[in-house]
Design a binder for these strands. Sequence first.
DNA 1: AATCCACAGGAAGTGCTGGGCG
DNA 2: CGCCCAGCACTTCCTGTGGATT
Length: 396
Amino acid sequence: MSEEYFSDGKIFADKEVLRSTYIPENLPHRKEQIASLTDILSRTLKEMAPSNILIYGNTGTGKTTTVKYVCKQLEELARTCNYALIYINCEIFYTQHRILSYLARVFNKRVPVFGWSTDVLYSELKERIDTEDRYVVVILDEMNESVTKEDETLYKLLRINRKLNKERISVIGISNYLSFPELLDQRVKSSLDAKEIMFPAYSPDQLKDILTERAHKAFNYSALDDAVIPLCAALATKRNGDAKRALDLLLMSGEIAERTKSKKVSEEHVRIASERIEANSTVEVVKTMLLHHKIVLSSVLMLTREKNERYFISGEVYNIYRRLCDHLGVEPLTQRRLVDLISELDSLGLINAVVVSRGRYGTTKEISLNVPEELIQPVLFADYELKALSNFSVEA
DNA sequence: AATCCACAGGAAGTGCTGGGCG
DNA sequence: CGCCCAGCACTTCCTGTGGATT
């Protein structure tokens, strides 16, 4: 540990430790999950009796890291048992064809990039597994977007099993959906017969432990103010106890400290980093919204800017929305649809919408902007379909 | 106590798109 | 190649709601 004597003024010792791809030697608060995963997998490897596993939990609960961690530990065992542990990220290998051709390549099958249909791949793969007499654990990570599409792949893989002389394929499915097991097709579920491992969100204290552990390796001695880790943990707790976000926050705080040539990472750096991360994700969300979502958000923005009130009711927003549509030459949606759009903007955290009863004056929603005007306005106005907004005024 | 406003939000249906399958 | 189906953005039609006002 002589490093700290040479590292004067340097914030980081090893940045990589804070990235989500890094597999630490110790995973705090995942003992249970590691134990059951190791237990199932090592029994699978030793007894050559494949079994399937479903892993689920919110983002940043350590699913991928845990699986990779366990796989790393079992690598040696896998080799001696003639087992292959294959990790596949479904977001990258997003079609059945890609997954199958990747698997075929793992089995030393030369696969042309074009020309082989899924069926050909499927039978080639089957034959290959049979002749090599090898066992496979296929890990399908990020089965999020279209479970239906991916469980077709699952189904195919499981069907290979039944057609082989001996069962040789185990599948580990990983998903962000808490209801993942129920989402699977019935026929898949019955033939899968999987053990389930659930990953709960981290508590603030648990996040603190994780950050402390990583910070120890990532930062130089005493480069962190004492308040930094608790603050990162607290901010990430608001985001569903997402450890990935907490680590991102810590990393960015460090980078800001580094750039401002500070000796230590301070609470202030964390605040700046947090704001930047929030702002970035807000901008990203707004950019990718559909046209009418943008017009509705613009309506709320206009009202906020030009009227001196804390909130606006649905009717007001709908009126402005119609006028904006008129101004832009866009066919307006119905009021019913607007209710849904407002709910969607609310759950995205861009606006606040609360249902209130105003007695004689009906039931409505009180709507207010929940993000800085100056943050979203440029993004909205940058949309070429909304250019004409810049010369629109709420006043008739 | 009854009324009634100004919507909320459920149900069901339409039209479009795009992917899989024979 | 057409056919079918699923998913989506959206519409139409509808019933429900809570409390200030009458």
